[in-house]
Simulated assay, not measured.
Amino acid sequence: MTTTSVNIEDLRTLIAGVLEIEPEEVTDEAHFTDKLEIDSLLMLEISTRVETEYGVPENTVVISGARTLAELHAFVTSNLVGETSAGPVIRPRPLSDPAVRLFLFHHAGGSHLLYRGWAEHFPQDWELCLLEAPGRGQMQALPLIDDCDRLVDYFHTAIAPLLDRPFGFFGHSMGSLIAYQLTRRLHHEGDPLPDWLGVSAYGASRGEAGADGRPHLMSDDDLRGWLRNVGGSTPQLLDNDAVWHKFAPVFRNDFKLLDTWAPPRAPEPLPVPLSVFGGRRDKLIGEDRLLSWQAFTTHFRGLERYEGDHFYLMNHRRPLAAAITAAMRSAAA
């Protein structure tokens, strides 16, 4: 991992150069779309220049979700300094002797960037471990995995050395399925179990696609339209053909994993406290699907819903981190 420093003023000058405006017009909190009128093509140009200047992995900036200069600076910094990676495990704030480890699993088509900036909202003696599936982000060189059991195998091997202290799992969307299946694997093999399992924006009773069809088999136009409708990705990715064609295979791979997963018949409830989270305006997962998790645990800790769609968590990091911290501490008491 490079140790190149990232000066926010250099980023300000870079963006101003692309927009052909004065640097002082690019304030730290000016929204790229609303205030600076940066469209998908301009964002792609900014991304390319940032990636070239700092060696950030290709196309990660454009899908990072950065909406202001401050967020872009935090993203680039997190990718260059203060973040260590041990294969698929990224630790934004590595600790030599953490009191707790919290493992975070990302959504379909996503990467560990979903949880960028989360570490600052958790206790200082907690170590967050962001899981990165192969074929994206820092793991771009590895082949994609389109089977749930195989991806669980991959993550099981990666985190096994880190289960030497209290730990918890939290997954969003596809990440919920992986976190649940990994917990089942640990239980079946007699390995240490998480003190707590958190699942977000995913229903327990059946595969994710459900009545919406099988996204991995949709045409390109249909898949992009479906993702726009359900709020499944950023406009920068969906509206730019070059970026979309780069990431479409990742979406199809992950949706195939979800579409082909066969839920266990009458699974034994896990002896792990389980909490559920979701967005009130989520078009993919309603309250009934979220509550279906009650049958999959002996210690159901309830459902918390936040304002927003399938990616509600992007706008509720601080309260969600507080809820996760409280749930973990209550489960461990």
Rank of each mutant, 00 (worst) to 15 (best):
A262N: 15
R224M: 04
H187L: 14
A248H: 08
A160G: 04
M218T: 01
D221K: 10
G171R: 11
G207M: 04
W244N: 11
V243K: 08
G203D: 02
A160I: 02
A242H: 15
R228K: 11
L237A: 13
G198L: 04
H245R: 11
D254H: 03
S233G: 15
L177N: 04
D212K: 12
W196A: 14
L237P: 01
R206D: 08
L182N: 11
Y180V: 04
W226M: 13
R185N: 03
R185Q: 09
D164E: 05
L163T: 12
T234H: 15
G213Q: 02
H188A: 15
S176F: 04
L197I: 05
L186P: 00
I159E: 03
W196V: 07
R185E: 02
G190I: 03
W261M: 07
L258D: 00
R165E: 04
G175F: 05
P192A: 13
R224L: 02
L186A: 12
G225P: 01
D259T: 06
I178A: 11
G168K: 06
F255Y: 14
W244Y: 15
P215Y: 03
G171M: 09
F167N: 03
R252Y: 01
N240D: 14
A201K: 07
I159M: 08
S233K: 14
M174Q: 08
P215A: 09
F170P: 06
D164F: 04
P166K: 10
L177E: 03
D239I: 02
P192G: 12
F251D: 00
H187I: 07
H172C: 01
Q181G: 06
V250H: 06
D222W: 01
H216N: 11
P166Q: 09
G175C: 10
D254V: 01
G210E: 05
A201N: 07
D220N: 08
G213T: 00
F170S: 13
F255Q: 07
D191S: 14
A179N: 14
R228M: 07
R224K: 12
L217D: 09
H245Y: 04
R252P: 00
L257C: 07
R214E: 13
M174S: 02
G225A: 11
L257M: 15
A204Y: 00
L227D: 03
D164A: 08
D212E: 15
F255C: 05
K256N: 13
L237Q: 09
A248Y: 04
T260S: 15
G168E: 04
Y180T: 07
G213H: 00
N240C: 11
L177R: 09
D220Y: 00
V243G: 08
K256C: 12
R214A: 10
N229A: 08
T183D: 07
H216P: 00
A160R: 13
A201M: 06
W261R: 08
D239N: 15
L258Y: 00
S200L: 04
W261E: 05
